[in-house]
């Protein structure tokens, strides 16, 4: 599928899908990479070393630092696929060298948990 490149790079790994938007500051532990928001569908899951798929980011502007901290603590996703890229996620990925792409709704919905994909955020493709 073709995707829009927001932050360039390439990564290969297993998909982890979130149904709800992600609030990085309140919702994710910046050291462990575990989802700590009890109301989130990924509660208790480790978001590191996966291709994280979620609709968009919400909440505090400092969430961008959470993304940077995840990278620093080796708990960051390998790449991120969004439906709508928000400023917090885009800037956090840019500073942390995490490839970020935006997919069309139909393509986005076709991504399944556990599926192995290659995010090519240079050519703008997911294989």
């Amino acid at each position: 599928m073709n995707v829009k490149v927001i932050v360039r790079g390439k990564a290969k790994g297993a998909v982890l899908c979130a149904q709800k938007p992600v609030n990085f500051l309140g919702g994710i532990d910046k050291k462990t990479g575990l989802v700590r928001d009890e109301k989130h569908d990924l509660f208790g899951k480790f978001i590191g070393n996966k291709i994280l798929v979620f609709p968009n980011g919400v909440g505090s502007s400092v969430g961008a630092y959470t993304i940077y901290s995840l990278k620093y603590n080796q708990s960051a996703p390998l790449a991120i696929v969004c439906l709508k890229a928000d400023i917090t996620t885009a800037s956090g990925c840019a500073i942390s060298d995490i490839p970020l792409v935006v997919a069309e709704k139909k393509d986005y919905e076709s991504l399944k948990n556990g599926q192995e994909i290659l995010v090519d955020a240079i050519e703008g493709k997911i294989l």
């Binding site: 490149v5 927001i6 890229a85 400023i87 996620t89 885009a90 800037s91 840019a94 500073i95 970020l100």
Partner: peptide, 9 residues
């Protein structure tokens, strides 16, 4: 950073 948020928005 500016280019990434420019593309995102």
């Amino acid at each position: 950073i500016l280019v990434a948020i420019g593309e995102a928005t």
